[in-house]
Write a protein that binds this DNA or RNA. Structure first.
Lengths: 333, 333
DNA sequence: GTGAAAGCGCTAACAT
DNA sequence: ATGTTAGCGCTTTCAC
């Protein structure tokens, strides 16, 4: 890297480094004419400020991190776009870090952030994350953390979520309305907020109708999950309705049904929390609880930037709930 | 950010900062015992080195960037995982930057990288990218660039691609074999290597069989593309076979067929370059040219790290082609 | 085997 | 309105 720096600019213009620095930052102390000359020369020499130097100096990196389990998920990829759209406007850079649903990875990433690499963190916890020590530790080092979608109850921080409970309830009621009495809930992990809230909604609906619960916790291994779901659908009293809490599980239900020659929706009706654009083109088309992914991303980023911009007041953070939408399609009709 | 630094460690242990620094980097100059003490104290105080300070000092950031059009694409999300898997092993951090298929965005991102923010760049150019000045400029500043999938011909750099020409040929031959004579090719942009190579394969096949070309260039606007595809499929001599060069276009074909009440595969047969895991569950299931996304990501990252690690010899870079696989499914049978 | 000191590029007091 | 200077935290000679 050969790099033009402020010193080079200063020499070129016969000015001091501080004048250049101030001019570049549009300080009121500098005359318009000088600013102009500096900007011109900077453009001419193709000057790009060294972000490490100013981060080191200013203790602000203008970087924020998105910590999520996976990028190959319709919800997360849309949420990323929402986050990006607001971060970019405020001059922040976005680091995307993947935990692969693994707690150790998540810990390592957050540990790394204690170094000051990022000014703040937006996160959706991994399905293995049961405790929030690593998050608390980061917050203690004054790096603000905002949860979106998957929050951790024990950590007092701003959280932008959707109405998981309500959606779980509505989705279940829909399946019951379609004649299902034996309905299974496919959860991701007993630790995960979204999974639990969605399940609580499911339970409420089942309870109201006097129907028995049937809950299956899946792991982060597709192979294991495939087996779990297959076993479930091979039983004599197999469920006729399935509510899948995440996209990856719905895909497996399709696969298992195909392999077992079960007919959707005749034999098995399926509803899934998903933002898949091609849900309508699946066979059968997939009934989804579609989350406001882009909006959630935007809201989360806005909340984080607010925390970064001003000394915030609210210690526990705000709590925002954006509703999801149940979109009925062939898999449950 | 309150942060434990080397100085604090030094005071705590009654050693000098340089000794600490050397101990942490496992220098041969430092006694085993001291190293041990330092490491212990570092762990105890939860020390995390300030990456900005060492980047500033060492002129190496240990960051690499992935510059891609979108993250909501099966190929890219798999490639990211491949890249990550090798970067992590070598202690590199990965920045994911999205161009949204926009040339100005791409320029701005690469310009930014002239600052030394990253040590190297892995990229798949946007569909609007026609010239490589911005890339050349970055390379001139000694930031190595490696292309994966979408390369730019005019820029001499390492490129990891798949056999686009061959795959385009094979896919077209398959459609012809299924009885299609009127086959349309949906390209992304006349500028894009992958689009052109895939199209060249298509042309070769069509030429061999004496069939007329029918090529449509799509934009980056889904709405425009929908209209384009709809118009194409509404014509009296509508194609009975379609080869889509990217995933996003295939989705639109499904949509248009559904809206126009056209039957796939009876009325329209479709083949698409895509890595969608749920291709088999679409209706009809989608015949795909599936790329070795993960492997390409790994290979690209490995190539970049090699460039970073040693003063490389090869100025034009290496050229690696990993073959794709044509997977026949319902949409073309 | 350990320490002192210079300096990476930038910013912000504090002069002038 | 412009310049001087001290340091952000780290690495790396060079000395001891």
């Amino acid at each position: 890297m050969k790099q033009i720096n402020i010193k080079a600019l200063a020499q070129e213009l016969n000015l001091s480094v501080s004048t250049i620095s101030k001019a570049l930052r549009d300080s009121y102390e500098i005359s318009e004419e000088t600013k102009h000359r500096v900007l011109e020369m900077a453009a001419k020499l193709n000057y790009t400020p060294n972000p490490y130097a100013s981060s080191l100096r200013g203790k602000k990196s203008k970087n924020i991190a998105i910590v999520i389990p996976e990028v190959a998920d319709s919800f997360f990829s849309q949420a990323i776009n929402g986050i990006e759209s607001v971060a970019k406007g405020k001059g922040y850079h976005v680091l995307i870090c993947l935990t692969h649903e693994n707690f150790e990875n998540e810990q390592a990433i957050l540990k790394e952030f204690q170094s000051g690499r990022v000014d703040g963190v937006l996160m959706s916890v991994s399905s293995e994350t049961a405790s929030g020590g690593h998050i608390q530790e980061l917050i203690a080092k004054e790096v603000p953390v905002v949860f979106f979608d998957r929050a951790l109850g024990e950590v007092p921080a701003t959280r932008i979520v959707t109405d998981d409970f309500q959606s779980g309830y509505k989705a279940t009621m829909h399946l019951i309305g379609q004649g299902c009495r034996n309905i299974a809930f496919l959860g991701v992990s007993s630790k995960l907020s979204i999974s639990n809230d969605r399940m609580a909604g499911y339970r409420k609906a089942m309870e109201e109708k006097g129907l028995p619960f049937r809950e299956i916790y899946c792991s982060s291994s597709p192979e294991e999950n495939y087996t779990l779901i297959k076993e479930m659908l091979q039983q004599p009293d197999r469920p006729c309705g399935v509510l899948a809490s995440v996209e990856k599980l719905a895909t497996l239900v399709y696969q298992v049904c195909s392999d077992l020659q079960l007919n959707m929706p005749a034999d098995v009706k399926l509803v899934c929390f998903s933002n898949l654009g091609i849900a309508a083109m699946l066979y059968p088309s997939l009934t989804t609880v579609t989350q406001p992914a882009f909006e959630m991303g935007k809201a989360a980023a806005a909340a984080l930037l607010k925390l970064l911009e001003k000394k915030n007041t609210d210690p526990a953070g705000l709590n925002m709930v954006i509703p999801s939408e149940l979109i009925l399609r062939g898999s449950s009709l």
